[in-house]
Design a protein around this nucleic acid. Structure first.
Length: 342
DNA sequence: AAGGCACCCAACCGCGCGCAG
DNA sequence: CCTGCGCGCGGTTGGGTGCCT
């Protein structure tokens, strides 16, 4: 995933025609080889994971053959990268990730793989799905094109500031929760992580002694694998979301949430939600300004005068309020670091 | 209870790029 | 230079699921 591969993808020359013919030939060959398509079975997953565990990835076509899979190399690669890879993060897209996606998309457009590079554990497919199912849906509700300046302004000056607000609110809640839990944790010697990484991988030995890998998330009752971390509601009046954001995305994410001017918040951070296993602890004070200060200095809500809204469209109608994930100011620091490094 | 509908996401598809021969 | 192959990207689709009537 280099994200730099260029260019438009329109069919524009004779090479694309020959490519189409090649694809037809290739497809026929696939049919003749009785290649499987569609959902992967547990056995196929295990075969692929075991093969990669023992031989590594790459050379997908030969890998598929050698692993005894009746799949195309492409299919194996996709399955591995988007689902079986041990470091794939599953579960809700966090507020931090949503903000990052919005910001990076505003920079790069539909460069999903490039965007995914900056969201550890997330795949381009997942981000693309998030964008299409959530963001584009709201563009539709606003009756504007997702690529229009109007919609981009809405994102930048309404939704993203609102996300930042939520981050700050969650940070405050997190701080309170952390402070109250420290006593307990200290007493019991337990450690806790706010971050939800339910992508656990267990290992076991086959009868032949071969190392086997099993993705525990795959064998559960549901692939949706919701995580239900503890949280502190910050607005109980809007607890129920009227749309379906809750599926994989934090309810708090709701892009239609209304905008209210932010105020500067000072928060004491004690725990970072770094998704990596080696979470680091930070004791720091951070001044977190408004979103405008973070990303859009000097711009305000006057930009939205004249913004068309459908009659039935209500800002904040489904304004979720509770984060599935703790956000704290350290995350904001992390986010800003990420953006400044890009 | 059942049918319709909307939503979500895993998987597929079409295409372009890079590279080795 | 040409060709074939492998790979990776963005776009699209179809099946599963849950909600609504």
């Amino acid at each position: 995933m280099d994200g730099v591969q260029g260019g438009g993808r329109g069919c524009n020359n004779s090479s694309s025609a020959s490519a189409t013919i090649e694809n037809e030939i290739h497809k026929e060959a696939e049919d003749q080889m009785d290649l499987r398509r569609g959902p992967w079975t547990v056995e196929e997953d295990l075969a692929l994971m075991n093969y990669i565990a023992n031989h590594g990835e790459g050379r997908w076509n030969s890998l598929a053959r050698c692993a005894g899979l009746k799949r195309t190399g492409k299919s194996c690669r996709l399955r591995w990268l988007n689902y079986l890879r041990p470091d794939v993060r599953r579960g809700d897209i966090t507020l931090e990730e949503q903000l990052l996606i919005l910001e990076l998309h505003s920079r790069w457009g539909n460069r999903w793989s490039k965007i995914a590079q900056h969201l550890p554990g997330r795949t381009d497919n997942e981000i693309k799905n998030y964008w299409r199912t959530r963001v584009q849906k709201h563009a539709k509700q606003l009756k504007c094109d997702v690529n229009s300046k109007q919609f981009k302004d809405t994102m930048r000056y309404l939704w993203m500031p609102r996300l930042v607000e939520r981050i700050q609110a969650a940070a405050a809640a997190s701080t309170a929760a952390t402070n109250s839990s420290i006593t307990t944790a200290t007493a019991t010697g337990a450690t806790s992580h706010h971050f939800n990484n339910n992508n656990t991988t267990t290992t076991f030995q086959s009868s032949s002694g071969q190392m086997l890998l099993q993705p525990s998330h795959h064998f559960g009752a549901s692939s949706h694998s919701h995580v239900t971390p503890s949280y502190t509601p910050d607005n109980s009046s809007t607890a129920a979301s009227s749309d379906s954001f809750g599926a994989q995305v934090s309810p708090v994410s709701d892009l239609t949430d209304y905008y209210t001017p932010t105020t500067t918040a000072t928060t004491t951070i004690s725990v970072n939600n770094n998704p990596t296993p080696d979470n680091y602890l930070v004791q720091a004070n951070h001044q977190v300004g408004s979103y405008d200060q973070c990303f859009n200095p000097g711009l305000g809500s006057e930009h939205f005068q004249g913004m068309e809204q459908p009659d039935n469209y209500q800002w904040g109608v489904d304004g979720g309020d509770i984060s599935d994930n703790f956000w704290n100011v350290e995350d904001m620091w992390f986010l800003q670091e990420q953006l400044s490094n890009i």
